Computed example of a mutant assay.
Amino acid sequence: MYQETEAQNNPWFLKEPSPLSKARLFCIPYSGCGASMYRHWPEFIGRLEVCPIQLPGRENRFHEPTYASYEQLAGEMNKALLPYMDRPFAFFGHCGSALPSYEASFQLVQRGGPSPAHLFISSQVAPHQGPYGRFLDLNDHELAAEIELLMRKMGGTPLPDIIELNTGIMRADLEANRRYIQSQPVQLPFPITAIGWNGDKEVDPSLLSGWEEYGETSFKILDGDHHQFLEAPLELISVIAEAMRLYV
């Protein structure tokens, strides 16, 4: 059973979650990125609060060591978020952050913690079908080029020092992805929504079918490329709102 930690001054949030929210959506940043990648998302979807999670080793937590495995990350994250799991909550993860979102959900169930109301997976194969993705085979120079592209998509300025720092973070994240081997599916006692994007050249929506082996799963294919979720398109927000409508 998880033990509750101090709720105030929690470094896992950029902003303290509101005590007035009816439910919370914990949004995990994907490989090489921090919580600011969700800056274009609304603070609330109805009365569902959007809570970007800041992982160690990036942005305002760059001085902290990053995690070595998804299992370690999920355990530490769940302990830190426990005070905020006092109302219905869900995880959202895209690509590289979908797997730690799943692992955090799995650990909560296995260790007797509060269970999520929902798990939202975007652009990621099921755990027992990975590791998957071309980024796993890129060298540091190629990763740096991808990070520069991503930073421009996010509206940032890709300064050399920042690119170098994020390349190291990306490499560590990819190593954790590579080591995350699950031999067989484990049924989860709450619904899953697996989201694909019809213009995604990284993860074809057809590759998400394995999630149906993890429990009650619905599949959505939305318009956009691999990075479309960054803009919080209305179609995506509507999918989330509909899945969480019973809780808000």
Rank of each mutant, 00 (worst) to 15 (best):
E202Y: 03
L208I: 12
G112I: 05
M151N: 07
C95S: 15
L234S: 14
N78F: 02
E59F: 09
L246M: 12
R24H: 01
S123P: 10
H226D: 07
L48C: 13
F229Q: 01
A176L: 06
R111A: 13
T193H: 06
V203F: 15
E16N: 13
L55G: 00
H63W: 10
D173K: 03
P127W: 04
K201P: 02
R87W: 03
P88R: 00
D137E: 13
E146W: 08
A172W: 01
D223Y: 08
S101Q: 06
C33V: 06
F229G: 00
A172S: 11
P205N: 09
Y67K: 03
M154E: 12
F190H: 06
G57Y: 06
E64C: 10
E76S: 11
W12N: 05
K220S: 09
T217R: 05
A7P: 01
F106D: 04
S122H: 03
Y2N: 05
P127Q: 08
G96M: 03
L55A: 04
A241P: 01
R111S: 10
I28G: 01
Y30P: 05
R245W: 11
G215K: 11
L222Q: 00
W12R: 11
R179D: 13
N10H: 08
L136S: 08
A7D: 02
D140H: 12
H40I: 02
N9P: 03
S123C: 15
V50C: 09
E146N: 12
L48P: 01
L143R: 10
L165W: 09
P56Y: 02
D137C: 09
Y84R: 01
L174H: 04
S123E: 07
G210H: 12
D86V: 13
R171T: 15
P116I: 08
N78S: 08
R179Q: 15
W197I: 04
Q72Y: 07
G75R: 10
M1L: 07
F219Y: 14
A35T: 11
S21F: 03
L119W: 02
Y132A: 10
E6G: 09
L246P: 10
P158T: 11
R178H: 12
E231L: 11
A144T: 07
Y214G: 01
G113K: 02
G93Q: 10
G112K: 03
A74C: 10
I240A: 03
I53M: 04
N198Q: 14
L188K: 06
E59V: 14
M154D: 08
D173N: 15
A23T: 07
Q124W: 03
Q110E: 12
E242N: 15
L73C: 09
F92H: 04
L230P: 00
D200H: 02
Y247Q: 09
